[in-house]
Computed example of a mutant assay.
Amino acid sequence: MQFLQPILLWGLLGICIPILIHLWRGKKGQVMYWAAMHWLSTQESSVAKGVRLENILVLLLRILMLVLLVFLLSQVFIPSLSKVSEERIIHLVQPSIQISQEYKFELQQALEKDEELYWADENLTEIEDLDELNLAGRTEDIQAALNQIPYEATQLNLYLSNSQNNIGSKNYLSKIKPRLFLGSADLKNSSPQVISIDGIKTMELNQNGLLDSIADDQSSADGINLEERDFAFYMGNVSTSERLFIKASLEAIQDVYGFDFVENEELDEAKLVFDHELPKGKDSEKLYIISNNFTFSEQANLVSFSDELDFEHSELVQTGKLPEVILERFLAYSGLEQQDVKLSQTQLESRFLVDKPKNQNKKANLNLILIGLFLLCYAAERYFANKQAI
């Protein structure tokens, strides 16, 4: 037995009320005058005190009424009495001909079983025929598709490519834990990207995702240019200990890679903002790193941490990974793409967080029985109370 509103069980303390009333009435007693009363001795004419046995039944009925009322308000749910809902299996496919063909047999079987098939796009487009796939103008949006999955779904099969560039580095919220089916990753052999500061090419991102120094005259097809103003940062409402560790992390990046981060006293002139909450006028041209105030967001220029970025609270600081995380997010925001790598099943599963409200599909299933018992007890209590004139 479960209670969907367990806090209302505190109402059971109310059973003290009828008990105290009965004890008080029994203590006070009731004086009854009759004609020959003055012929009795003082001991014989004393008032009888105590709870009479015929009142115990009324007391028990009143206690039972209060218990039934509290149970009714607390929404009693018994799983064994709940009807088992029909199985509803949903298949969500990343918009890719390669994945749909690779899992064509499984998806075709799902269609034959009248299970639901959808593309993982912003409109959650239904797949009706695997032989006539049309991906023209279809934009992948896994989170938007997950948002439209109904709570009534009993199973979610998600078909994805295990490519870092295709999936991205963000987390996803889902109403139900998905079963992942990974397609073969088609890794692109792109040339290394070059980072240049003020027009001078200095570093490139190698195949391992690390920055390497290169000769100034080395040419490259791909690259991004960072100016001095791109390294200006602003410290908002952060604690003193956070300020020390953030500055130490930026100095560590400067010592290794030569990126000269400079603190700016004016928010408007900074490109990198550290704070505990987003400013009211958020600028899309700035990268916000918000600590001690975790907020799930898909915005590319927002990085959130639930803990303060100091040694006492943050595991990133304790393990010395904070400079690495700041640099990675800063380069990704600046437009530097990581080299494509394969992701394992475990790595992908950790990206999907379940956000299913508690008791979403549970409804009290004893309300009618409790109401019936309450009315029955009320009628019995009124009958015996009127009969005994109490």
Rank of each mutant, 00 (worst) to 15 (best):
F105P: 01
I127N: 05
Q148F: 03
G223W: 12
D131M: 08
N123Q: 14
R88D: 06
E115C: 09
F105H: 10
D186H: 12
L180D: 00
D198Y: 04
Y151S: 09
S184G: 02
L187G: 03
L210C: 05
L92Y: 03
P150F: 13
S100V: 11
S219C: 03
D198G: 11
S220C: 09
I78N: 07
Q108D: 02
D222K: 13
D217L: 10
T139Y: 15
Q193P: 01
K113R: 09
D141P: 10
E122Q: 14
Q108W: 05
S169M: 13
Q98P: 00
I167T: 13
Y118V: 00
A185D: 02
L211G: 05
E106P: 00
G183P: 03
K188F: 13
P79W: 12
P178L: 00
Q193W: 06
L180H: 00
Q164E: 09
Q193R: 07
E128M: 14
N162G: 05
S163G: 12
L130T: 05
M203D: 12
I90R: 08
D217I: 09
N189F: 14
Q109G: 06
L135Q: 03
E122F: 13
L92Q: 03
Q193N: 11
L205R: 11
L107M: 05
D186G: 09
E86S: 11
N165S: 14
L158W: 02
I176Y: 10
L146Y: 04
R138D: 05
A185F: 04
S82D: 15
N171F: 13
N162Y: 04
G168W: 10
S85D: 12
L130H: 09
E106H: 07
I149M: 09
A120K: 04
S190A: 14
A145Q: 02
V194Q: 06
S191P: 05
A136F: 15
P178T: 07
L160D: 01
I167A: 12
L156H: 01
E87V: 02
A221T: 15
I142G: 11
I214E: 00
G209L: 13
I176R: 08
L211V: 10
I97N: 12
D186V: 14
L173I: 01
R179F: 06
Y159K: 02
D114L: 06
I167D: 11
K104F: 04
P178S: 06
I78Y: 06
E204C: 08
E204W: 12
Q148L: 09
P178K: 04
K113L: 07
Y172I: 05
L130W: 09
L146A: 01
L117Y: 00
G137F: 15
S96W: 10
D121C: 08
T125P: 10
E106T: 04
K104L: 02
